[in-house]
Design a protein around this nucleic acid. Structure first.
Lengths: 347, 347
DNA sequence: TCGTGAATTGGAAGCGCTTCCAACAAAGGC
DNA sequence: GCCTTTGTTGGAAGCGCTTCCAATTCACGA
C-alpha cells in the first residue's frame, strides 16, 4: 500500500486525453469540448485527484506572492485578534493553493503609504493584494493598483471598494438587523447604539440593519439614541455613561464591535446594573473577547478566518482561473447571532 | 531589470562546483570539503540566494506535511487567541519552508485520542507533529509517535516531554521571576498567586519563579497565598474574592494567564478597589485580552507566533537537515514584561 | 609501485505541473 | 472543391530542486 497520490498523468490516462488537456480543464482554460471536459472531471472525481500546488507554482512561473495590507499601527495593536484571524485564514488559503503571503501593516498616517503599497508590487512583485478597511474603500488606491496589473480583493468594502475589485465580507446590514430583531423578540423597545468611527462603512451598515428592524417593529428615531466610539474598549468605557443617563433609558445596548461592548459591560457592572436582567448588551464580531467578559457576550459572529481564506481564493481565481477579466464579484459569507449571556427579556 | 531570482545553478556556476554539491552544502549533507563548503556559502551570500521551497519539496519527495495537535475542544473555545497565534506562526513557517500543515483539535476526553494521532501519521502521512500542552508532556504518546518514524516538537514541555523530543517555549520560571521582581521593586511585600490546573507544568513553573523572587527578597510562604483556577475568565471571577478577603491582604495579585487576570480585574472593580493604586494585578501571555480590560493589563509577553514558527523550523531541520538523529534540543524564546497600567507602587 | 576503500564530486533523471508550439479537424469563404 | 480560419488536442521542454549512481581523487598499507 504505497498510496501514492494520483498525479495529473493518472487523470490523463484514465480519461484518455493528453496531460495538457487535463491541465487546461483544471485551469478553466478555453477550447475544450464539453464532452471532454466532463470526462476529465469524472476521472478527477474517480481518482480523488488534487493538484499539487508546489508543482503548479514551480511550473507556472510568476512570483506566486500575495500581499495582505492592514491599516493599523502594529505598535498600538500588537496582538489584535482581527489581524490574526484574517491572516490565519489567508495563510491557510495560501498553503492550499500554493501561494506565498507577505503581511504588511501600513499606518494611515504614513506620508508615503501609497508608495509603500506600490513597492509591494514593484519590489516584492506581489501578484495580488488583499486590502482591509479602510484601504478596502480607497477607490483611488485600488484603481491605481489594478492599473499596475496587480489583482485586488477588498475585505468588507462598504461603498467605493465594492464595484472596483473583488470583495469578501459578511452582510453587515443583515447582521445588524438580526441582532436587533432578536432583541425586539425579547421585548425590547428602547435602544442604544454604539457605532464606530466616521467613515467606517461596514459599521455604519450595521446601524442601517438595526434601523430597519426598528421600523419594521413600528419603532423610530425617538426610540434610539446613538453615539460614535472608535472600536476600542476604552471608548466603550467612556461613552456608556452618556447612554445610561439618557432620559430614554434604553433596555438594550447594541455595540458595533465586541471590544466596545466589553467596555460598556465593565461600566455597567460598576454601576450595579444587572446584565442581562436590567440591561441587554450585544457585541459584534465574536472575537475571543466575548468569552472573557462576564456574562459571556451575546454577539454576531463574523467569519474572519473564512474571509481571509476566501480572499486568497478569489485572488487565485483571478490569477490562474478563467476569471482574469471577469466582473468584480462580492463574496458574502454567512454570519450568525451567537447567543451567550448578555441578552435576555426586557425588564 | 528582469530581477529573476538566482537559482541553485547560478550559485553552482559562481562557486565553480556542480549543482549537486551546492545542494549538499545547502542541506548540511556529509562529504563536502570545508574549503568547498565555504566557497559555496560565499556565493550564496554574494547572490543573496534563497532556496525555492516549492521546487525543493517537489523534488524532495515525501508528503511534506506537518500536523499541529491541540488538546482543546473546538466547541468550547472556538476563537481562542492561543490557538490562533500558534497556528499563525506555524503557517508562516510552513510557507517559508515549503511545508503543508494540518491542524487537529483532539479533545483529551476522546476515547480514541491516541488513535487519532496515529491516523495523522498513517493516513494523512504527516512527517512531523507539533504537540501543544498537555500533549507535549505525554511521554508515552511522544515515544510511540517517534517510534513510528514521525518527528515531534513539543510546545512548552514541562517535564516528561523535555528530553524525549525537540521543544520550543519560553522560560516560564524566569517569566514568573521577572514579573515578581518588578512588583518587589515597586514595594510590594504581600502577594497572591492565581495558578492553573493541576499538572499544567509550564504554569507551575511560573509559580516557581515567583517563589524564587520572593525568597531572594527575604520573603517566604507566609507572604503569599495561592489558589488554582483553570485559566478561564470565569475562574478568575470566582477565586478573586477569596484572595481579597484573606487576612494577608495582598497588595499584588499575580495571575498565571491574562484571562484569569481579566476576571480578577472585573471583581476588583466591582468592589470599588482601585487598580493599580490599591492593588496591582498582573497577567501572563500578553494576549489581546490585556488590551481590552481597563486599565490595560501589565503582563508577561509569551511569543506564541514565534513559537509556532520555530516549531516548524525545528521539524524541518530534523527532516532535511543534518539533525535527523541529533539529541533533542530545546529552543527557548525570549519573554518580556510588558508594563501597561495594572502594576504600580504598593499602597 | 600498485591496489583498495573511503571521501568527495559530478551527471543525469525526474518530482508534477504549465505552456509554447505544432498538428490536426471542423467550419466557413471564395 | 480548395484554401483559410477557428477550435481542439497532443508533444515536449523546462520550472528549481533532490537524489541515485557513477566517476574521480586521495590516503594508506602491502
Amino acid at each position: 500500500m504505497t498510496a501514492r497520490r494520483p498525479t495529473i498523468d493518472d487523470v490523463a490516462r484514465l480519461s484518455g486525453v493528453a496531460r495538457t488537456t487535463v491541465s487546461r480543464v483544471l485551469n478553466d482554460g478555453p477550447n475544450v469540448r464539453d464532452e471532454v471536459r466532463a470526462r476529465v472531471m469524472e476521472a478527477v472525481r474517480a481518482l480523488d485527484y488534487k493538484v499539487n500546488p508546489q508543482a503548479r507554482s514551480l511550473a507556472g512561473g510568476g512570483s506566486r506572492l500575495l500581499g495582505l495590507v492592514f491599516a493599523s499601527d502594529l505598535e498600538s495593536e500588537p496582538n489584535s485578534f482581527y489581524h490574526s484571524a484574517l491572516e490565519l485564514g489567508a495563510l491557510r488559503g495560501c498553503l492550499e493553493l500554493g501561494y506565498q503571503l507577505v503581511t504588511r501593516h501600513i499606518p494611515l498616517q504614513s506620508a508615503d503609504r501609497e508608495q509603500q503599497v506600490y513597492d509591494l508590487i514593484a519590489t516584492q512583485r506581489c501578484e495580488g493584494l488583499i486590502f482591509t478597511p479602510p484601504y478596502s474603500d480607497d477607490a483611488g488606491l485600488i484603481a491605481e493598483v489594478l492599473r499596475r496589473g496587480c489583482k485586488v480583493v477588498s475585505i468588507s468594502p462598504g461603498g467605493a471598494g465594492r464595484g472596483l475589485a473583488d470583495g469578501v465580507g459578511m452582510d453587515d446590514e443583515a447582521g445588524g438587523y438580526d441582532i436587533a430583531r432578536r432583541l425586539i423578540e425579547l421585548g425590547h423597545r428602547r435602544f442604544a447604539f454604539m457605532g464606530g468611527i466616521e467613515g467606517h462603512l461596514s459599521a455604519d451598515r450595521r446601524l442601517d440593519g438595526l434601523m430597519r428592524a426598528l421600523s419594521e417593529a413600528g419603532l423610530g428615531d425617538a426610540d434610539l439614541i446613538q453615539v460614535r466610539g472608535d472600536f476600542t474598549f476604552r471608548s466603550g468605557v467612556e461613552l456608556t455613561p452618556r447612554l445610561l443617563d439618557d432620559p430614554l433609558h434604553p433596555t438594550a445596548l447594541v455595540c458595533a464591535n465586541d471590544d466596545m461592548a466589553a467596555g460598556a459591560l465593565s461600566v455597567v457592572h460598576g454601576r450595579g446594573v444587572k446584565v442581562p436582567q436590567d440591561l441587554s448588551v450585544t457585541g459584534f464580531d465574536d472575537t475571543p473577547v466575548s468569552a472573557i467578559v462576564w456574562p459571556p457576550l451575546t454577539t454576531v459572529h463574523q467569519p474572519l478566518k473564512d474571509m481571509g481564506r476566501r480572499a486568497v481564493a478569489l485572488l487565485a481565481s483571478r490569477l490562474t482561473g478563467g476569471r482574469a477579466e471577469a466582473e468584480p464579484e462580492f463574496d458574502c459569507l454567512d454570519h450568525a447571532v451567537v447567543e451567550r449571556g448578555t441578552a435576555a427579556s426586557a425588564p
